[in-house]
Design a protein around this nucleic acid. Structure first.
Length: 464
DNA sequence: TGTCCACTGGAAGGGAGGGCTT
DNA sequence: AAGCCCTCCCTTCCAGTGGACA
């Protein structure tokens, strides 16, 4: 009998998906429902690039999942497409002119021209014209500042996007920043044309590295001779602009685009649209899409969340071996997504942060009602001793606690207990069992996962 | 009204680790 | 190998703070 591989059974299994990628957040569909206004506005600004003029700098604002990135990328693709089309049109015109020229036997140069034409050596004759006109170079460089979050990295990223071979690329560290800037300027100038630089999640960049980079980028045109550049900043935090230098603020905000959240009905349209390409016919119960939309609309109209819900619900239905996605699957998907995100965040924490989180968990397990930084630090110190690890200072631990707060694993707020001092009050925002389940996976923490802190501390803390 | 507690959180800077040029 | 640069993680220092209490 033929032996079956472990994947064969699943590979042959029936699936509700036609194309799962269509439901992924980074998929750019051919149509973006309810974003016509924004697309037109953006296109009306960027069309300048096709005329070889510098488009205005643009600031785009909208909550997560309102289509900012999708629209920007979509318009970018269209811009590139149009630039290619125009360039082809122009090339054809040149060929036609050449042919006419040859046919007219203009001034006895026909043979020479024909010869050149046969060898496709246009540049010999139309060199300058070709260089300047045939290709309307439009470069659209997209950078997500969540990962590329320092001045140096943004500059190298842009500079490297003009370089094709690996060995010519700028290194990830090592060069002085002004040297990288010079190289970037040179690369842009060599490439020529109009360069649009998109900085997605620009607030992350400014928060971490200040606005020097924006100042430099919005003023790069004065250093360019053969090219023009403009910047599109995308953010979901409108307030971040308040912290910018006034000069940066005014030049980045030459044009502003606001992306309002989708309402439940608009989300439904988006889901219907995508599901037609993503899922088999009749794979969805009629109430599924309205439910996904309603759930996502509750959370500031986040289309990404709506798509995730539908995708995960379909995956769960697939695993159930049913041929229909039901409301039950959507509800399951909702809790699965929430759990998965938290688990993933905890899993990727650095060891010291995990240790701080564990000491918070341990305090909660010991029924501490009002948990403060001091108590967390005390248990943390004990854990470090047990594990023979370096103990960080309380100052550093305060920062780690704030980071855990930002990640949404805990809630902390500063309160004053009068003479008892002023400190952070720490509460969990995720069930302790869920956190512990993930922490238990870590080999490092295994020896102390059920650690009991010294009694004195618990007595002291419950007195507060 | 002033004092005092237990911190908070900003600023500055050290140093290890990555990489470059000379 | 030496000298330089950038990033990341961390320490040290310290002014500032909300509110209970005397």
């Amino acid at each position: 009998m033929e032996k079956k591989g472990i994947f064969d059974e699943f590979l042959g299994a029936k699936t509700l998906f036609k194309n799962k990628e269509v439901l992924r957040p980074n998929y750019i569909p051919e149509e973006l429902p309810h974003r016509r206004t924004q697309i037109n506005h953006l296109a009306s600004i960027l069309v300048a690039a096709l005329r070889g003029e510098t488009p205005s700098n643009i600031f785009i604002y909208g909550k997560t999942g309102t289509g900012k990135t999708a629209v920007t990328k979509y318009v970018g693709d269209e811009l590139n497409k149009k630039a290619r089309e125009l360039s082809e049109e122009y090339e054809n015109k040149i060929i036609k002119t050449t042919l006419d020229y040859i046919n007219d036997d203009n001034g006895g140069r026909a043979n020479y021209l024909e010869n050149a034409f046969n060898h496709l050596d246009f540049e010999k004759f139309f060199g300058d014209e070709l260089k300047n006109n045939i290709k309307i170079p439009v470069h659209y460089i997209y950078i997500n500042c969540q990962h590329v979050d320092t001045q140096y990295r943004v500059l190298t990223h842009i500079a490297n996007s003009f370089i094709e071979t690996w060995d010519e690329r700028l290194p990830l560290t090592g060069w002085p920043t002004d040297e990288v800037y010079n190289r970037l300027r040179q690369n842009i100038d060599d490439a020529g044309g109009v360069i649009t630089i998109i900085l997605d999640e620009i607030d992350k960049l400014v928060e971490k590295s200040g606005d020097d980079i924006l100042y430099n980028l919005t003023r790069i045109n004065s250093d360019l001779h053969n090219a023009k550049a403009n910047v599109i900043g995308i953010s979901n935090d409108l307030k971040f602009k308040e912290f910018l230098d006034a000069r940066v603020k005014s030049s980045l905000g030459e044009e502003e685009l606001i992306f309002p959240p989708y309402d439940a009905e608009q989300l439904q349209d988006i889901l219907y649209d995508r599901s037609q390409n993503a899922l088999q016919e009749k794979a969805i119960e009629s109430s599924v899409i309205p439910l996904c939309s309603a759930l996502a609309a509750q959370e500031h109209g986040d289309a990404r969340r709506a798509l995730d819900l539908l995708r995960v619900a379909a995956e769960l239905a697939d695993r159930d071996n049913t041929n229909r996605i039901t409301e039950k699957h959507v509800r399951k998907a909702l809790s699965k997504i929430e759990q998965d995100t938290v688990a993933e965040v905890i899993r990727t924490l650095p060891p010291q942060s995990k240790l701080v989180l564990l000491s918070i968990v341990i305090n909660h397990e010991n029924d501490v009602v009002k948990l403060t930084t001091g108590m967390v630090f005390d248990v943390y110190k004990e854990l470090c001793e047990k594990l023979h690890m370096d103990t960080l200072t309380q100052r550093r631990v305060t920062d780690l606690i704030s980071e855990l707060d930002m990640l949404g694993i805990i809630n902390s707020r500063v309160v004053s207990f009068g003479r008892g001092g002023r400190t952070k009050l720490i509460e969990r925002s995720v069930p302790v069992e869920n956190i512990k389940e993930v922490l238990e996976e870590s080999d490092l923490l295994k020896p102390v996962i059920d650690y009991k802190p010294m009694i004195s501390q618990i007595v002291q803390s419950t007195l507060l």
